[in-house]
Amino acid sequence: MDNAAPALTFRDAHDGDVDALVALVESAYRGDASRAGWTTEADILQGQRTDPEGVLAVIKSPDSRLLTVERDGRVVACCQLEHRGTHAYFGMFAVSPALQGIGLGKAVIAEAERRVREAWGVTEMHMTVISVREELIAWYERRGYRRTGRMTPFPYGDERFGVPLRDDLRFELLVKELG
């Protein structure tokens, strides 16, 4: 009997993935289902994290790709990669709550970094993280990302980003040099 973990398949998302990707992102960040994992934002934000239009826009953008990860034919993780000149932007990162904590996120981010270096020749990966998400920021720091202290406001009043439960939310830029 083979005890090896099921193989992961990495590919760019297509239109037919939209519903599965929206469900994945929502399950990883919002509502009670997200509490099964450690990346939940349920205590700081309610409402949606993304929607079909937002996911489709990333898929269709000529400067972006939505890296989709399958295991046993099921979408289990994803991340947005956007080419922005000398750097790439990393966003919409989601791992199925049931599969968090087993190294899947590490594998996805490593593959994302490899792909942007090869495809676009970029020297840095940038991302923004809600600054109160200390545990998540620490996870990224262990992957080589550094806090910059550069903050941008949270879009209060724009429910496409969720309904804040706190009044101190803002985004911090994290950066990693890609070797």
Rank of each mutant, 00 (worst) to 15 (best):
S27K: 13
S27Y: 13
Y29H: 07
R30F: 07
D32W: 10
S34K: 09
S34D: 05
S34R: 03
A36E: 15
A36N: 14
W38L: 08
T40A: 14
E41H: 05
A42T: 13
D43T: 12
D43F: 03
D43M: 09
L45Q: 03
G47C: 03
R49T: 03
R49M: 04
T50S: 13
D51W: 02
D51L: 10
D51R: 00
P52D: 01
P52S: 08
E53C: 04
V55K: 06
V55N: 08
L56Q: 07
A57L: 03
A57N: 12
V58G: 00
K60Y: 00
S61M: 11
S61V: 02
D63N: 04
S64C: 13
R65A: 06
L66S: 11
L66F: 15
L67R: 00
T68E: 01
T68F: 06
V69F: 09
V69W: 06
V69K: 11
R74A: 15
V75D: 04
V76P: 02
A77H: 00
C79T: 08
Q80E: 06
E82W: 00
E82K: 08
H83K: 09
H83A: 02
H83R: 12
G85A: 02
T86W: 01
T86C: 00
H87C: 06
A88C: 14
Y89R: 04
Y89W: 08
M92F: 06
M92L: 12
F93D: 10
A94K: 06
S96P: 15
S96D: 15
P97T: 05
P97G: 09
P97W: 09
A98C: 12
A98V: 14
Q100E: 11
Q100M: 09
G101P: 08
G101S: 04
I102Q: 13
I102W: 12
G103R: 11
G103L: 10
L104Q: 10
L104D: 06
G105T: 08
G105K: 09
K106Q: 13
A107R: 13
V108T: 09
V108D: 00
V108A: 09
I109Y: 10
I109L: 14
A110N: 03
E111P: 02
A112V: 04
E113S: 00
R114T: 07
R115N: 11
R115D: 06
V116Y: 00
A119E: 13
W120Y: 11
W120P: 03
G121M: 01
G121T: 02
V122T: 05
T123M: 05
E124R: 07
M125R: 10
H126T: 05
V129C: 11
V129G: 06
I130P: 04
I130S: 02
R133S: 14
R133F: 04
R133L: 15
E134C: 11
E134Q: 13
E135L: 14
